[in-house]
Design a protein around this nucleic acid. Structure first.
Lengths: 159, 159
DNA sequence: TATTGTTATACTCTATAACTATA
DNA sequence: TATAGTTATAGAGTATAACAATA
Protein backbone atom coordinates (compact mmCIF):
# COMPACT_ATOMS: atom_id res chain seq x y z
CA UNK A 1 0.00 0.00 0.00
CA UNK A 2 1.96 2.96 -1.25
CA UNK A 3 0.20 6.09 -0.19
CA UNK A 4 2.82 8.79 -0.44
CA UNK A 5 2.73 11.86 1.74
CA UNK A 6 -0.45 13.62 0.64
CA UNK A 7 -0.47 17.21 -0.50
CA UNK A 8 0.62 19.85 1.96
CA UNK A 9 -2.53 21.59 3.06
CA UNK A 10 -2.25 24.54 0.76
CA UNK A 11 -5.52 23.67 -0.94
CA UNK A 12 -8.63 25.77 -0.66
CA UNK A 13 -10.87 25.15 2.33
CA UNK A 14 -13.20 22.21 1.90
CA UNK A 15 -10.83 20.83 -0.69
CA UNK A 16 -8.79 18.26 1.14
CA UNK A 17 -5.49 16.83 -0.04
CA UNK A 18 -5.84 13.28 -1.23
CA UNK A 19 -4.91 11.70 2.09
CA UNK A 20 -5.87 14.43 4.50
CA UNK A 21 -8.42 14.09 7.21
CA UNK A 22 -10.91 16.82 8.00
CA UNK A 23 -10.05 18.43 11.35
CA UNK A 24 -13.30 17.15 12.68
CA UNK A 25 -12.04 13.58 12.26
CA UNK A 26 -8.33 14.04 12.78
CA UNK A 27 -9.21 15.73 16.04
CA UNK A 28 -11.07 12.67 17.26
CA UNK A 29 -8.80 10.47 19.28
CA UNK A 30 -11.13 7.56 18.68
CA UNK A 31 -10.56 7.45 14.97
CA UNK A 32 -6.78 7.61 15.13
CA UNK A 33 -6.68 5.24 18.09
CA UNK A 34 -8.63 2.65 16.19
CA UNK A 35 -6.43 2.75 13.12
CA UNK A 36 -3.21 2.68 15.10
CA UNK A 37 -4.41 -0.26 17.20
CA UNK A 38 -5.35 -2.18 14.06
CA UNK A 39 -2.07 -1.52 12.35
CA UNK A 40 -0.03 -2.66 15.32
CA UNK A 41 -2.26 -5.68 15.82
CA UNK A 42 -1.90 -6.72 12.19
CA UNK A 43 1.88 -6.43 12.36
CA UNK A 44 2.09 -8.44 15.57
CA UNK A 45 -0.25 -11.11 14.23
CA UNK A 46 1.94 -11.50 11.18
CA UNK A 47 5.14 -11.67 13.20
CA UNK A 48 3.68 -14.44 15.36
CA UNK A 49 2.72 -16.62 12.40
CA UNK A 50 5.91 -18.71 12.43
CA UNK A 51 5.13 -19.60 16.04
CA UNK A 52 1.62 -20.75 15.18
CA UNK A 53 -0.07 -18.47 17.69
CA UNK A 54 -1.97 -15.20 17.69
CA UNK A 55 -1.88 -12.18 19.95
CA UNK A 56 -4.60 -13.52 22.26
CA UNK A 57 -2.69 -16.75 22.74
CA UNK A 58 0.40 -14.77 23.51
CA UNK A 59 -1.38 -12.71 26.13
CA UNK A 60 -2.74 -15.81 27.86
CA UNK A 61 0.64 -17.50 27.76
CA UNK A 62 2.36 -14.50 29.30
CA UNK A 63 -0.14 -14.61 32.12
CA UNK A 64 0.30 -18.35 32.64
CA UNK A 65 4.04 -17.98 32.42
CA UNK A 66 3.87 -15.51 35.29
CA UNK A 67 1.46 -17.56 37.38
CA UNK A 68 0.19 -21.04 36.67
CA UNK A 69 -2.28 -22.50 37.21
CA UNK A 70 -5.20 -20.15 36.75
CA UNK A 71 -8.88 -20.74 36.06
CA UNK A 72 -10.18 -19.69 32.67
CA UNK A 73 -12.33 -17.08 34.35
CA UNK A 74 -9.34 -15.62 36.19
CA UNK A 75 -7.37 -15.32 32.98
CA UNK A 76 -10.26 -13.73 31.15
CA UNK A 77 -10.91 -11.16 33.85
CA UNK A 78 -7.35 -9.95 33.76
CA UNK A 79 -7.18 -9.83 29.99
CA UNK A 80 -10.68 -8.46 29.34
CA UNK A 81 -11.57 -11.63 27.48
CA UNK A 82 -15.05 -13.15 27.68
CA UNK A 83 -15.21 -16.63 29.19
CA UNK A 84 -16.72 -18.10 26.03
CA UNK A 85 -13.77 -16.76 24.09
CA UNK A 86 -11.43 -18.18 26.72
CA UNK A 87 -12.72 -21.66 25.96
CA UNK A 88 -11.56 -21.38 22.36
CA UNK A 89 -8.21 -19.89 23.26
CA UNK A 90 -7.41 -22.60 25.80
CA UNK A 91 -8.63 -25.21 23.29
CA UNK A 92 -6.12 -23.86 20.80
CA UNK A 93 -3.32 -23.79 23.35
CA UNK A 94 -4.00 -27.39 24.37
CA UNK A 95 -4.03 -28.56 20.75
CA UNK A 96 -0.69 -26.87 20.26
CA UNK A 97 0.67 -28.43 23.45
CA UNK A 98 1.25 -25.02 25.01
CA UNK A 99 -1.13 -25.37 27.94
CA UNK A 100 -2.94 -28.10 29.84
CA UNK A 101 -6.26 -28.19 31.62
CA UNK A 102 -6.53 -29.99 34.95
CA UNK A 103 -9.42 -29.98 37.40
CA UNK A 104 -9.17 -27.69 40.38
CA UNK A 105 -9.74 -30.13 43.24
CA UNK A 106 -10.72 -27.38 45.66
CA UNK A 107 -13.50 -26.10 43.39
CA UNK A 108 -14.43 -28.67 40.83
CA UNK A 109 -16.27 -26.21 38.63
CA UNK A 110 -12.94 -24.65 37.78
CA UNK A 111 -10.18 -25.75 35.51
CA UNK A 112 -6.60 -25.31 36.53
CA UNK A 113 -4.92 -24.14 33.35
CA UNK A 114 -1.14 -24.34 33.29
CA UNK A 115 1.55 -23.48 30.82
CA UNK A 116 3.65 -26.42 29.57
CA UNK A 117 7.43 -26.45 29.68
CA UNK A 118 7.87 -26.33 25.90
CA UNK A 119 5.58 -23.30 25.86
CA UNK A 120 8.00 -21.31 27.99
CA UNK A 121 10.34 -21.06 25.06
CA UNK A 122 7.50 -20.09 22.75
CA UNK A 123 6.45 -17.24 25.03
CA UNK A 124 10.00 -16.03 25.24
CA UNK A 125 10.34 -16.06 21.48
CA UNK A 126 6.95 -14.40 21.03
CA UNK A 127 8.04 -11.76 23.52
CA UNK A 128 11.02 -10.98 21.33
CA UNK A 129 8.68 -10.69 18.37
CA UNK A 130 6.47 -8.32 20.33
CA UNK A 131 9.45 -6.16 21.25
CA UNK A 132 10.69 -6.10 17.71
CA UNK A 133 7.33 -5.16 16.23
CA UNK A 134 6.87 -2.44 18.81
CA UNK A 135 10.35 -1.13 18.23
CA UNK A 136 9.53 -0.89 14.55
CA UNK A 137 6.09 0.62 14.90
CA UNK A 138 7.00 3.03 17.67
CA UNK A 139 10.11 4.20 15.84
CA UNK A 140 8.64 7.69 15.24
CA UNK A 141 8.59 8.26 19.00
CA UNK A 142 11.47 8.76 21.41
CA UNK A 143 11.85 6.39 24.36
CA UNK A 144 10.42 9.05 26.59
CA UNK A 145 7.42 9.59 24.34
CA UNK A 146 6.74 5.86 24.28
CA UNK A 147 6.63 5.81 28.05
CA UNK A 148 4.31 8.82 28.02
CA UNK A 149 2.01 7.15 25.52
CA UNK A 150 1.83 3.95 27.55
CA UNK A 151 1.12 5.83 30.76
CA UNK A 152 -1.64 7.88 29.15
CA UNK A 153 -3.26 4.79 27.68
CA UNK A 154 -3.08 2.88 30.93
CA UNK A 155 -4.91 5.65 32.70
CA UNK A 156 -7.76 5.31 30.21
CA UNK A 157 -8.23 1.57 30.46
CA UNK A 158 -11.46 0.76 32.26
CA UNK A 159 -12.31 -2.35 34.21
CA UNK B 1 -19.12 -5.91 34.16
CA UNK B 2 -18.18 -5.07 37.72
CA UNK B 3 -14.49 -5.58 38.09
CA UNK B 4 -13.56 -3.57 41.15
CA UNK B 5 -10.15 -2.14 41.68
CA UNK B 6 -7.95 -5.22 41.95
CA UNK B 7 -5.67 -5.82 44.88
CA UNK B 8 -2.81 -3.40 45.39
CA UNK B 9 0.31 -5.20 44.26
CA UNK B 10 1.49 -6.21 47.66
CA UNK B 11 1.32 -9.90 46.77
CA UNK B 12 4.36 -12.13 46.41
CA UNK B 13 6.08 -12.16 43.05
CA UNK B 14 4.46 -14.45 40.53
CA UNK B 15 1.23 -14.10 42.45
CA UNK B 16 -0.78 -11.46 40.66
CA UNK B 17 -3.71 -9.59 42.09
CA UNK B 18 -6.98 -10.69 40.56
CA UNK B 19 -7.01 -8.00 37.92
CA UNK B 20 -3.35 -7.21 37.57
CA UNK B 21 -1.35 -7.64 34.43
CA UNK B 22 2.16 -9.06 34.42
CA UNK B 23 4.70 -6.32 33.67
CA UNK B 24 5.56 -8.14 30.49
CA UNK B 25 2.05 -7.47 29.18
CA UNK B 26 1.26 -4.18 30.87
CA UNK B 27 4.50 -2.86 29.42
CA UNK B 28 3.37 -3.67 25.90
CA UNK B 29 1.73 -0.67 24.33
CA UNK B 30 0.01 -2.98 21.86
CA UNK B 31 -2.05 -4.76 24.46
CA UNK B 32 -3.27 -1.65 26.23
CA UNK B 33 -3.81 0.16 22.95
CA UNK B 34 -6.02 -2.60 21.69
CA UNK B 35 -8.22 -2.70 24.75
CA UNK B 36 -8.57 1.07 24.95
CA UNK B 37 -9.48 1.31 21.28
CA UNK B 38 -12.12 -1.38 21.68
CA UNK B 39 -13.63 0.20 24.74
CA UNK B 40 -13.93 3.60 23.10
CA UNK B 41 -15.26 2.08 19.89
CA UNK B 42 -17.91 0.12 21.78
CA UNK B 43 -19.03 3.25 23.62
CA UNK B 44 -19.21 5.29 20.45
CA UNK B 45 -21.09 2.57 18.58
CA UNK B 46 -23.65 2.45 21.35
CA UNK B 47 -24.07 6.22 21.47
CA UNK B 48 -24.72 6.31 17.72
CA UNK B 49 -27.47 3.69 17.84
CA UNK B 50 -30.34 6.21 18.08
CA UNK B 51 -29.05 7.76 14.85
CA UNK B 52 -29.04 4.44 13.04
CA UNK B 53 -25.41 4.67 12.00
CA UNK B 54 -22.07 3.23 13.09
CA UNK B 55 -18.64 4.74 13.51
CA UNK B 56 -17.58 3.95 9.93
CA UNK B 57 -20.66 5.69 8.57
CA UNK B 58 -19.91 8.66 10.74
CA UNK B 59 -16.35 8.89 9.45
CA UNK B 60 -17.50 8.80 5.83
CA UNK B 61 -20.19 11.38 6.49
CA UNK B 62 -17.73 13.75 8.12
CA UNK B 63 -15.54 13.48 5.07
CA UNK B 64 -18.44 14.05 2.69
CA UNK B 65 -19.68 16.92 4.80
CA UNK B 66 -16.30 18.57 4.38
CA UNK B 67 -16.04 17.88 0.66
CA UNK B 68 -18.67 16.35 -1.59
CA UNK B 69 -18.63 14.70 -4.00
CA UNK B 70 -15.85 12.14 -3.64
CA UNK B 71 -15.24 8.80 -5.31
CA UNK B 72 -15.49 5.74 -3.10
CA UNK B 73 -11.79 5.11 -3.62
CA UNK B 74 -10.92 8.63 -2.51
CA UNK B 75 -12.94 8.25 0.66
CA UNK B 76 -11.42 4.88 1.40
CA UNK B 77 -7.87 6.07 0.94
CA UNK B 78 -8.32 8.87 3.40
CA UNK B 79 -10.05 6.72 5.97
CA UNK B 80 -7.93 3.58 5.55
CA UNK B 81 -10.99 1.66 4.42
CA UNK B 82 -10.77 -1.02 1.75
CA UNK B 83 -12.76 -0.34 -1.41
CA UNK B 84 -14.86 -3.49 -0.96
CA UNK B 85 -15.79 -2.28 2.49
CA UNK B 86 -16.59 1.14 1.04
CA UNK B 87 -19.24 -0.42 -1.18
CA UNK B 88 -21.15 -1.69 1.84
CA UNK B 89 -20.81 1.55 3.75
CA UNK B 90 -22.08 3.67 0.86
CA UNK B 91 -24.87 1.13 0.30
CA UNK B 92 -25.92 1.64 3.91
CA UNK B 93 -25.75 5.41 3.63
CA UNK B 94 -27.88 5.40 0.49
CA UNK B 95 -30.49 3.16 2.10
CA UNK B 96 -30.66 5.56 5.01
CA UNK B 97 -30.90 8.52 2.66
CA UNK B 98 -27.70 10.03 3.99
CA UNK B 99 -25.69 9.91 0.78
CA UNK B 100 -26.27 9.56 -2.96
CA UNK B 101 -24.24 8.01 -5.72
CA UNK B 102 -24.00 9.76 -9.08
CA UNK B 103 -21.77 8.97 -12.01
CA UNK B 104 -18.64 11.01 -12.41
CA UNK B 105 -19.03 12.23 -15.98
CA UNK B 106 -15.33 12.98 -16.36
CA UNK B 107 -14.33 9.43 -15.47
CA UNK B 108 -17.25 7.09 -15.79
CA UNK B 109 -15.61 4.35 -13.76
CA UNK B 110 -16.01 6.50 -10.71
CA UNK B 111 -18.99 7.31 -8.60
CA UNK B 112 -19.53 10.78 -7.28
CA UNK B 113 -20.72 10.22 -3.75
CA UNK B 114 -22.35 13.17 -2.04
CA UNK B 115 -23.86 13.81 1.34
CA UNK B 116 -27.57 14.67 1.36
CA UNK B 117 -29.00 17.73 3.06
CA UNK B 118 -30.84 15.79 5.78
CA UNK B 119 -27.58 14.03 6.53
CA UNK B 120 -25.89 17.28 7.51
CA UNK B 121 -27.98 17.35 10.66
CA UNK B 122 -27.20 13.72 11.36
CA UNK B 123 -23.46 14.34 11.13
CA UNK B 124 -23.75 17.31 13.42
CA UNK B 125 -25.68 15.29 15.96
CA UNK B 126 -23.27 12.37 15.64
CA UNK B 127 -20.41 14.80 16.14
CA UNK B 128 -21.94 15.86 19.43
CA UNK B 129 -22.21 12.20 20.39
CA UNK B 130 -18.56 11.69 19.53
CA UNK B 131 -17.54 14.67 21.64
CA UNK B 132 -19.63 13.51 24.54
CA UNK B 133 -18.28 9.96 24.46
CA UNK B 134 -14.74 11.22 24.23
CA UNK B 135 -15.28 13.68 27.03
CA UNK B 136 -16.51 10.79 29.14
CA UNK B 137 -13.83 8.29 28.20
CA UNK B 138 -10.95 10.76 28.30
CA UNK B 139 -12.05 12.18 31.63
CA UNK B 140 -8.99 10.72 33.44
CA UNK B 141 -6.76 12.96 31.31
CA UNK B 142 -6.31 16.71 31.42
CA UNK B 143 -6.96 18.74 28.26
CA UNK B 144 -3.24 18.99 27.74
CA UNK B 145 -2.74 15.27 28.11
CA UNK B 146 -5.49 14.60 25.60
CA UNK B 147 -3.73 16.77 23.07
CA UNK B 148 -0.46 14.98 23.82
CA UNK B 149 -2.08 11.60 23.35
CA UNK B 150 -3.63 12.60 20.05
CA UNK B 151 -0.36 14.01 18.75
CA UNK B 152 1.58 10.89 19.74
CA UNK B 153 -0.97 8.64 18.07
CA UNK B 154 -1.05 10.70 14.91
CA UNK B 155 2.70 10.37 14.56
CA UNK B 156 2.34 6.59 14.64
CA UNK B 157 -0.35 6.29 12.00
CA UNK B 158 1.08 4.77 8.82
CA UNK B 159 -0.18 5.25 5.29
C1' DT C 1 -29.03 -19.11 43.52
C1' DA C 2 -24.64 -18.05 41.61
C1' DT C 3 -20.46 -19.46 39.26
C1' DT C 4 -17.52 -22.10 35.84
C1' DG C 5 -17.12 -23.94 31.78
C1' DT C 6 -19.21 -25.45 27.45
C1' DT C 7 -21.74 -25.38 23.03
C1' DA C 8 -24.15 -23.46 19.30
C1' DT C 9 -24.99 -19.57 17.15
C1' DA C 10 -24.57 -15.07 15.25
C1' DC C 11 -22.78 -10.55 14.63
C1' DT C 12 -19.21 -6.98 13.30
C1' DC C 13 -15.55 -5.64 10.71
C1' DT C 14 -12.53 -6.55 7.32
C1' DA C 15 -10.23 -8.59 3.38
C1' DT C 16 -9.43 -11.80 -0.91
C1' DA C 17 -10.58 -13.21 -5.44
C1' DA C 18 -12.95 -12.91 -9.51
C1' DC C 19 -15.73 -10.12 -12.27
C1' DT C 20 -17.53 -5.81 -15.17
C1' DA C 21 -16.90 -1.35 -17.01
C1' DT C 22 -14.21 2.03 -18.13
C1' DA C 23 -9.64 4.44 -18.97
C1' DT D 1 -2.69 -2.68 -18.68
C1' DA D 2 -4.51 -0.37 -14.81
C1' DT D 3 -8.29 1.59 -12.12
C1' DA D 4 -13.22 1.94 -9.96
C1' DG D 5 -16.66 -0.42 -8.38
C1' DT D 6 -19.13 -4.71 -7.45
C1' DT D 7 -20.19 -9.38 -5.77
C1' DA D 8 -19.60 -13.55 -3.28
C1' DT D 9 -17.21 -15.45 0.07
C1' DA D 10 -14.51 -16.16 4.04
C1' DG D 11 -11.98 -15.13 8.00
C1' DA D 12 -10.90 -13.11 12.67
C1' DG D 13 -12.56 -11.71 16.87
C1' DT D 14 -16.12 -11.33 19.88
C1' DA D 15 -20.49 -11.91 22.24
C1' DT D 16 -25.35 -13.88 23.51
C1' DA D 17 -28.22 -17.53 25.09
C1' DA D 18 -29.06 -21.88 26.86
C1' DC D 19 -27.19 -25.65 29.28
C1' DA D 20 -24.59 -28.97 32.72
C1' DA D 21 -21.93 -29.47 36.68
C1' DT D 22 -20.75 -27.70 40.90
C1' DA D 23 -20.80 -24.47 44.79
Amino acid sequence: MVLGKGQPNGTAQGDLGLFELPDRLGGQIGFVLNKVARQLHAMFTESLEPLGIKPQHYAVLVLLDASSPLSQQAIGQRLYIDRTTMVHIVDDLEKRGLAVRAKNTADRRKHAVSITEPARKVVAEAGRMADSVQEQYLAPLSQNERRQLLQLLKRLLRP
